[in-house]
Design a protein around this nucleic acid. Sequence first.
RNA 1: GGCGGCGUGGCCGAGUGGUUCAGGCAGGGGCCUGCAAAGCCCCCUACCCGGGUUCGAUUCCCGGCGCCGCCUCCA
Length: 473
Amino acid sequence: MLRLHDTATGQVEPLRQRDAGRVSMYVCGPTVYDVPHLGHGRFSLVFDVLRRYLLFGGLDVDYVSNITDIDDKIIARAAAEGRPPDQVAAEFEAVWWQVMRSLGVLAPTHAPRATQWVAPMVDLVGELLATGKAYVTAGGVYLSVGSVDGYGLLARQSLDSLRSGARVDVGEEKRSPLDFALWKRAKPGEPAWDAPFGAGRPGWHTECVAMSLGLLGDGFDLHGGGADLAFPHHENERAQAVALGRRFAGHWAHNGWVVVEGEKMSKSLGNFTSLTDLLQRSDPRAYRLLVLRSHYRSPIEVTPPTVADAEKGLARLDALARRFALARLDAPGAAPEAVTAEGALAAGADASSVEAFTSRMDDDLDASGALAGVFDLVTRANVAADGGRSDEARRLAVTVVQLCGALGLALRGGGPDEAGGPGTPDGPTAALVAERDAARAARDFARADAIREQLAGAGWVVEDGPGGTTIRR
RNA sequence: GGCGGCGUGGCCGAGUGGUUCAGGCAGGGGCCUGCAAAGCCCCCUACCCGGGUUCGAUUCCCGGCGCCGCCUCCA
């Protein structure tokens, strides 16, 4: 049974299910006003790993992750570029899904767009007004947080203490600095939807309430996102649900930062902040491995050296898959379909290793520890193979591939038909390989080395094994 | 000002009141190999500082120092 840190209590607690055998989770998705950055990648990977691990345990998972496609930033960018906001949103949403695919993130069960949920949001704001806990101003509708019991839970601070630190914007019509917009009245030229309290657009915090409750129902199991969403975003979502007397998320999970050279990543810090850049420069699986290597709540350093380190770790895993000609879990995309414990065992994985993996992961998703166990299996598999114990070796190697698959890591066994694999050498290249084998058989090592140079020049890594020369990219 | 987190061996990064241990990467030495690559073995080996609790603390408590984050849009 998975135990997971809950931001609301500050404790690691069992992740309870409202409906037996089924987990309902909501993860705050991106505002699509720009290309995704490393932080988007991290939360997507973290919650993908969580989801996969729940699936691994045989649970069904309803996974909802939204697209915020109407927002001040989108409007600002559209205005700056002289095009409609929905065009900006559509462009960056497309980039988003493409990046998610390349990271091997399983597609959400539902991926609602804010603009398609405006009607429920208008209803929700109307209900809040009816309770008297929300109020209308010239600029829109605000929620009075002082009327909400327990406001500050996720910040783990009292309302008073939050108030004392709050910065007050001049010119706002809020009754309290912490009150937040449920609805923003449209200024001329801005996109607007009709509402009884004035045409405008929803405030950011409102959409997640409407969509999570609408798609997953009251008292859904888990709400997640990056640590900076805990306050105020998630707190403000919770406040709305509480104000309406509805049961909201049963458990809150937040992942840690991406840092660059010791500081929170920011767009001003140049290199590697864009996820698309990272994925162009390195194996997308390396970022997943990097994320898996540290605890999900810890900050991670993502820099060229740490990425390179992860790529080398990946190479060790791939080499094992190659040695045993395993790893077909990557079809059809960059990541495997969900792997279940049952499926892993049926595929021949070692039961005690699966158990060890499970107990690590059950402990607040200790992926780093689980991964250490996997690397241990790599060594054991190689040792067994070197020692001629091929059945044992194969069982351990299968375990590695299956457990990596459970974490969403597709290993590459070097098969020519493998998605994302090296591809089949063309005729002339294959002829060179054959010629090199002949030269080695004839002990013409000068010729063999020359051919290796030539192949290396074309980007092939040459490996001589008992069965002859193999090459790979 | 309020609240929270972190400080581990060359680097990254887990974990724990006590004999041996994370794990990866890098480095050194060996084995294997025609040479490489891959693989295996061995070595390098830590817990910010000062008190306290304890038979014993890197692990618990207190204090200090340093770093980081949230309190404002932010993954």
